[in-house]
């Protein structure tokens, strides 16, 4: 009895394993429905086209560093950014783990999970030329550069211009036009 059930089990496990491997190798995505994470990442990438960093921040750097702090919602959408460039430099996605690493970022996305230490993060950044982006409520008020949010189901964003200026980031007038709100001081 035990031997019999064991053979069945082995076969089942192997069959399952085979099916699993086959499925994971071949099940290609059809038309992926846009999800919020992918859309947020598209915004993040698009913002970089409307921002000028001070020359000193990009000189001597072979890569454009896009940093993510905390548990991000981007998922597999991040793959698409790996092959892209910003200001003719290939995008490198990194997750800074120290204050020093933070200073190397060109763009910093602050995830929801880091809301409780937001002031501290912004203090750490100070006036470094880093474009900070987040979905956190009050992000722009508290000193972040761009807050992306949902107006019902539509994506919108707001800008803290004063912070951008202090960080020596130049934001194009087009970006300001499209913003739902611009905080100037």
């Amino acid at each position: 009895m035990a031997a019999f059930s064991l053979t069945i089990t082995k076969k089942r496990i192997l069959a399952a394993l085979g099916a699993w491997l086959l499925l994971s190798g071949s099940a290609g995505p059809g038309q992926p429905a846009p999800d919020a994470g992918a859309l947020q990442l598209a915004f993040l990438y698009n913002f970089t086209k409307f921002v000028e960093w001070p020359a000193s921040s990009l000189a001597n750097r072979s890569e454009f560093e896009l940093c993510i702090l905390g548990d991000d919602p981007f998922g597999a959408a991040l793959d698409a950014l790996n092959s892209r460039t910003v200001r003719d430099k290939p995008v490198q996605i990194s997750r800074p783990r120290s204050a020093a690493a933070l200073q190397r970022c060109h763009v910093l996305y602050v995830s929801q999970s880091e809301g409780w230490r937001l002031r501290q993060i912004l203090q750490e950044i100070g006036t470094a030329p880093i474009l900070t982006v987040s979905n956190l409520e009050d992000f722009a008020e508290l000193g972040g550069t761009i807050r992306q949010f949902w107006d019902d189901d539509r994506p919108r964003f707001e800008i803290n211009m004063a912070v951008a200026q202090k960080s020596r980031l130049t934001l194009s007038s087009k970006l300001l036009e499209l913003a739902a709100r611009v905080i100037r001081e």
Partner: peptide
């Protein structure tokens, strides 16, 4: 998505199902 411009992106609509976090 990253190839779309900002106006196109802003025209997109995300239903509540799409807002579910799908973190891998």
């Amino acid at each position: 998505l990253p190839d779309m411009n900002l106006e196109q992106l802003m025209g997109m609509e995300i239903t509540s199902a799409g807002k579910k976090s799908q973190k891998l």
